[in-house]
Structure formats: C-alpha cells, structure tokens
C-alpha cells in the first residue's frame, strides 16, 4: 500500500522580539523537511501579531505564522520536531490535518478578500459627514436626572427637619421641595404663634 500525501496546517507562535535571521533559519528548516518528503508548501504567511490570551514564558505578545503544506505523513513529524527544537523562540505550535477542499476553500475566500479590499477604501470619504452629525446625540443623554427627583416629595413629611438638608437633592428637585418646605415651616410657625 503506497503512502499518499496529506494536507497539513501548522500554526506557530514566535516570540515578538525574535531575530529575523533566527526566524529565517527556522522557516528554512521547515521548508527543507517538507521538500524532503515529496511535499510542497501551499501557504507560508504571517497570520497575525496579537496579544496572547495568557502569558507564555513571560511573553504577553506573540507573532502567529501559518504554514499550509501537502506532504507525506513523515513531514509533519519532522516539522514538529524542528519547532520543538527551537522552543525558546517558538512559544506554541499546532499541526492539524486538513483536506484538499478546506485548503481550496480558504484560498478562494482569501482571493475574494484581496479583490474586495481595494474597493473598500472608497467608503471612508462618506464617513466624515456622520462624524459631524454625531455631536447631536449627547444632549439626549441627560434623561436620568429628570427621573431622579421622584424621591424628594417624600422628604417634606417630617416637619421637624430643617429646610437646609432638603437642599442636598439634585438639580430641579430643590426648587419644588424648598417651596414645599417653606410652606410647611410657614404653617408650623403660624401654628406656633397661634
């Protein structure tokens, strides 16, 4: 039974401060191990540079590189062996078997993206008008304060309380409560005099 080549996808994270020479050396080794196993590299890209979800070897950031290749099963083993060897520079790696369809699909979607990307820069000119219109919404925000003054009407109930503490409730409330208070105090004084 002949061993048929498979499709593999390797994703590895390098240290953010890796030397370019070291990276080139590692990538060369990966390439060699694939080509020595009747393989071909379909894609070898820098995928992203992002913050790691958790620290690995005290690194908070990492650079992700993706490598898609078609080769005999031995190649994936060799690739992993090399990545393991340079584990000071390579924080994590994962190799998964994929299918030809998935690889082709990804290729097609990427080509689509590349086609759409040049067209997308046109929308930005249209965007600035919205920024000028944006400043209007803020005035709508101060709604909550109007809802807040509800409690104060309960305050005037204790007639012994002096008018001064009633001034603490916010914004619109003081005017109404002060009036109520003064009325209350007036009646009290009248009652007192009488």
């Amino acid at each position: 039974m002949a061993i048929t080549p498979n499709y593999y996808e390797t994703l590895y994270i390098t240290r953010p401060d890796i030397q370019e020479e070291d990276l080139a050396k590692i990538q060369q080794k990966l390439q060699d191990s694939i080509s020595s196993n009747e393989g071909e590299i379909i894609k070898a890209d820098k995928w992203a540079e992002r913050n790691l979800a958790y620290e690995i070897q005290d690194h908070k950031k990492g650079t992700y590189y993706i490598l898609v290749f078609k080769a005999l099963p031995n190649a994936s083993k060799e690739v992993e062996k090399h990545l393991q060897f340079y584990r000071t520079d390579i924080l994590r790696f994962i190799t998964l078997k994929t299918t030809e369809e998935a690889v082709n699909k990804n290729k097609a979607s990427e080509e689509k993206k590349e086609k759409t990307e040049p067209t997308t820069p046109t929308p930005p000119p249209a965007a600035p008008p919205t920024t000028t219109a944006a400043p209007t919404p803020p005035p709508a925000a101060p709604e909550p304060p109007t809802a807040a003054p509800e409690p104060p009407p309960a305050a005037p109930e204790p007639p012994t309380a002096a008018p001064e503490p009633a001034a603490t409730p916010p914004t619109e409330a003081p005017a109404s409560t002060e009036e109520a208070k003064t009325e209350n105090t007036d009646t009290q004084e009248e009652g007192g005099t009488n």
Partner: peptide, 15 residues
C-alpha cells in the same frame, strides 16, 4: 480547546 492552547482564547479569567 485548540484555540485555548494557541493562546487565542483564555482558559480562565484568572490568568
């Protein structure tokens, strides 16, 4: 779980 291993997603909030 794969995503977590590659530090794309966190395992917990406590990292």
């Amino acid at each position: 779980k794969r995503s977590r291993f590659m530090a794309l997603l966190p395992y917990t909030v406590l990292h």
